[in-house]
Simulated assay, not measured.
Amino acid sequence: MNKKSTIQRIKLQRLDSLELFSASNSNKSFPLHYHETFCVSVIEKGAFIENSKTALQNSLLISNPLEIHKNSAFQNLDYSIKTLYISKDIFKFALGKNKVNNDFLLQNLITNNFLFDKFNQLSNQIIDSKNSFDSDFETNFIKFIEKIGQFKSNKKNTSNTTEPTWLENTKQYLKTNLAQKISLETLANQTKLDKFQFIRAFKKQVGLTPFQYILLSRISLTKQLLQEGNSITETALDAGFYDQSNFANYFKNYVGVTPRNYQQSFNILQD
C-alpha cells in the first residue's frame, strides 16, 4: 500500500445505534461472514469485491441482513470505503412496516449520483460532528433511507425461512455456551447425527460450517464487550477464546484491526 491505511468506527446512540465504518487505503480481505443489519457502503477509491460482484469507485454496495458474503480487494489494489450499518427497524420507520417485511431485500449494487452524494454528506457529518448534529440530520437521513428503499431487489429472501427444530436448538445452545469449549461431537449428539452428517446438514441450512458460525458468534460478542469498555483479556475469555494470540488473529481477520485498535477507534456519540 502506498499510503498509510486508516480505520475509524463511530456508533451513535440515536437512530437505533447507527454505526459508521470508514477505511482508507486498505487492501484487506474478509472471510465469509454476515451482519444483523443492512450494510450500505460507498466505494471512494479503487474497487471492492463482494462474492461475485465488483463495486467500482463512486458506486454503492449493499449487504442485506444475514446475507453471507466475503470481501476482497480488486487485484490486491488499495481501496477506500465507508459503510453505514443500518437496522431493519430504521427501514420500517422510514418506509412503513407493511413494506419492510421478512422478504424485503435491497439490490446489492446501485449506481446513483444522488444517493452517493447524500451518503457522503451524511457520513462526513457523522465524522465531523463531535457529539453535535445539525437539526436536519435525522430528516435528511430518513430521506436517504426512503430513496434507497426504492431499489428493492427481486431476489427471494431465503434467510427468514423456517428453521428445523434441531437447528434452532443448536443455535440456542451455542448462544448460551459461547464462553465454554464446544465440541462438534456434543453438538452432533444433540441432533442424533454423527459428526460429519451434522457438519453437512448445518452448512446446508446456514451456509457456514459450525466452526465458522461459532467463530462469527464469538467475534460479534467480543465487539460488543470491547465497545462496553471491557478489557481485552476478559473479553476473550468471556467469548470462549482461551488463547490470546488466536483471539487477536481471528479478530483482525474478520474485523480488519486488532482488538486494541478496534476499542481505541470506536467512538460512541451521545445525543
Rank of each mutant, 00 (worst) to 15 (best):
T222P: 04
F91T: 03
S22H: 11
L95Q: 13
I10V: 08
G207Q: 07
S245C: 07
T37K: 12
D271H: 15
D238T: 05
I86N: 13
L208I: 01
T162K: 13
K70S: 12
I90L: 06
Y79H: 11
G240L: 02
A236Q: 06
N51C: 09
F241E: 12
K156Y: 09
S231H: 05
L105T: 06
G240R: 07
N113E: 10
I142L: 15
I182Y: 13
N246V: 11
Y34D: 06
K118F: 01
C39Y: 03
E146G: 10
Q270C: 08
Q224M: 10
K195L: 11
Q75T: 06
D134P: 07
F30A: 09
L215H: 11
I68R: 12
A179M: 10
E146A: 08
S132H: 10
N101F: 00
K204L: 11
T209Y: 01
N267R: 15
K181R: 15
F74V: 08
G96M: 07
K45E: 03
L225Y: 15
F141V: 00
G240P: 06
A23C: 05
D117A: 01
I126N: 08
Q270K: 15
T176Y: 08
F202S: 02
P210C: 01
N58G: 04
T6I: 07
Q125P: 03
A188R: 07
D103L: 04
L237Q: 15
G207M: 02
R14N: 07
Q244L: 13
Q244A: 14
F144A: 08
I148H: 02
K11P: 08
R218T: 00
G256S: 13
S153I: 07
N108I: 00
D136N: 15
P164G: 12
N71Y: 12
N112T: 08
S183A: 03
E185K: 10
I81P: 11
V206S: 06
Q197L: 03
F30R: 11
V40L: 01
I182R: 13
